[in-house]
């Protein structure tokens, strides 16, 4: 059970969710599409957001939560200011992405899918960014780093600290 999953929704946030649900005609079968758009807006899907969606679509919060937890794309944790994505596609993987990932985990003291307590960094994996020539590839925010090795991790992080 995550503790920090609740927030206080502002009026405009509520209105945004209402607008998205209305655009899908309040149809329960559009839940996944609604969740996509709402997550795009907030960056994640905290409890109160799910509750608001449930009430708009007239379905139970438990069901919404069921869908959010079923699909790995949806997250209930806010992404960090600088989301770190490590490519674990085949090319990056064989060139040592795993070790790079381990180093990020160690330095930030968080697991994949988590965010540092100061909200600065979050850690995630993705599959192939189409830059296999640069493998292993790491993205921090909008910036891409190529040929990353474990000993370069500290340097990369320092750039954003």
């Amino acid at each position: 059970m995550a503790d920090n999953i609740t927030i206080k929704l502002k009026k405009e946030d509520n209105e945004f969710i209402e607008k998205v649900c209305a655009s899908f005609n309040y149809s329960k079968t559009e839940l996944i599409n609604v969740l996509h758009q709402v997550q795009e807006h907030f960056g994640y899907l905290p409890a109160e957001v799910q509750e608001k969606i449930a009430s708009e679509l007239k379905m139970s919060v438990a069901k919404v939560f069921g869908v959010v937890t079923f699909y790995s794309f949806f997250t209930m944790l806010p992404k960090g200011e600088f989301p770190i994505s490590i490519c674990t596609g085949t090319a990056c993987y064989v060139r040592g992405a795993e070790k790079v990932l381990d180093e990020f985990r160690k330095q930030l003291n968080i697991e994949v899918g988590q965010t540092t307590p100061d909200g600065k960094f979050s850690l995630g994996c993705l599959r192939c960014v189409g830059a296999c020539g640069l493998a292993p590839v790491v993205m921090v925010g909008e910036k891409t780093f190529g040929r990353v090795s474990a000993d370069k991790v500290e340097e990369i992080l320092a750039e954003f600290r």
């Binding site: 609740t6 927030i7 206080k8 907030f42 409890a47």
Partner: peptide, 9 residues
């Protein structure tokens, strides 16, 4: 049942 607390978004 309400899932909220005082934290701002």
């Amino acid at each position: 049942i309400k899932f909220e607390d005082s934290k701002e978004c």
